[in-house]
Amino acid sequence: MLTRREALLGSVLTAAAAAAVVAMPVVASAAEVASLPREKVTLVAPPFVHAHDQVAKGGPKVVEFTMTIEEKPMIIDADGTQLNAMTYNGSIPGPLMVVHQDDYIELTLINPETNTLAHNIDFHAATGALGGGGLTLVNPGEQVTLRFKATRTGTFVYHCAPGGAMIPWHVVSGMSGAVMILPRDGLKDDKGKPVRYDRIFYIGENDFYVPRDEQGKFKKYETAGDNYDDTVKVMRGLIPTHVVFNGKAGSLTGDNAMRAKVGETILIVHSQANRDTRPHLIGGHGDFVWEQGKFANPPAKDLETWFIRGGSAGSALYTFRQPGIYAYVNHNLIEAVELGATAHFVVDGTWDDDLMMQVEAPKPIAS
């Protein structure tokens, strides 16, 4: 016969076991996954994002993406400095992929035979050793398909991670991007109320380490692999030659500035695969900011500047209230002004004097 203590312990263990069963994720068989609806998505180059539903329609599905790796020279500043870039789909950063929690991401990664190096992809959103990196390593002339379940909501980095010293070299040559996994019922504010966005922009920040010659001029190389030794020496100094948004200083200014209207709510997804950064919207705020990028956590409110850890992506929601040109910067202002980490939003609408006005124009100081 059980003692009272044994019976109590047994009931506790039973309750704990039951709770564990409830907490365990539902595991789908291969046949069940195969029976799910499939959606094929064509990716678009940042800062734009492919069409998607903010609230999921129906149950989980398999979302198919295809990315082609491109090794190519890219100009990264107004002076014509060349980066021997490695890219996903030809852009820096690689495209943002958007799905909902419990969907499956199925990526076909293509490494054309015209490339010279092996590449892969490590998804921070994935569950499994190396984030899929060990299952996606492809040599030139090969392609591979990986599927993983989107179990956690939020914004997550992906990047190339072929092993050893190749990892940081490939990353600072441009090979990173982000995934956004939305809750099935959409985003929520700090009180759990639904929030929506009118537009979404994806900004990927990169630090580049371009070698210089004996005269101090930036060097150029023929192929992606030719600069390895020289670039690693610069990388080890931990001082970037460029810190830029979307692959080039000025890439999101002028004719390429991001556009919005007064009253529109904008979601900004910002990633940095290698270094810490601190985004700031000059003249605006983060109404709601998922600084760590994870939608299961309530957002912070009314931030002036937010912090994105190296190797992560965060997101900020803001409703523009005044027209004009807003600078969006890395608020290490040296990196923003001197190294290139500046973008612009051009906002159309009617000015509100109640929010800001020049009371008196400049004039000589009264004697």
Rank of each mutant, 00 (worst) to 15 (best):
F123M: 12
A161E: 08
L130N: 14
A161V: 11
A125S: 15
L83E: 08
G132E: 07
L96T: 00
Q82K: 15
I76F: 09
G154F: 07
N115K: 05
C160E: 03
Y88H: 00
G163T: 02
A150D: 06
A126L: 13
A125Y: 00
I110L: 10
N115G: 06
L146K: 15
H124D: 11
T108L: 05
I110R: 14
A150E: 03
T145C: 11
T151Y: 09
T114C: 08
I92V: 14
N89C: 09
T116N: 11
T155E: 08
D79K: 14
N84H: 06
A165V: 05
A85D: 01
H124E: 03
G133R: 06
G80F: 00
I76C: 08
M86R: 15
Y88K: 11
T114W: 11
C160K: 00
L117E: 04
Y158V: 03
G131P: 06
P162G: 12
P140W: 00
G133Y: 13
Y158G: 07
L83F: 10
E106V: 08
Y88S: 10
V157Q: 01
H119D: 03
E106I: 01
R152N: 08
T108C: 08
A161R: 10
G154H: 04
A150G: 14
G164K: 03
L109D: 03
D77F: 08
S91R: 02
T127W: 02
T114H: 10
V144F: 05
I105E: 01
M166W: 15
K149L: 12
P168D: 12
G128L: 03
C160Y: 01
E113M: 04
G154T: 05
V138P: 03
R152A: 15
H100N: 09
G80H: 11
G80M: 02
I76K: 12
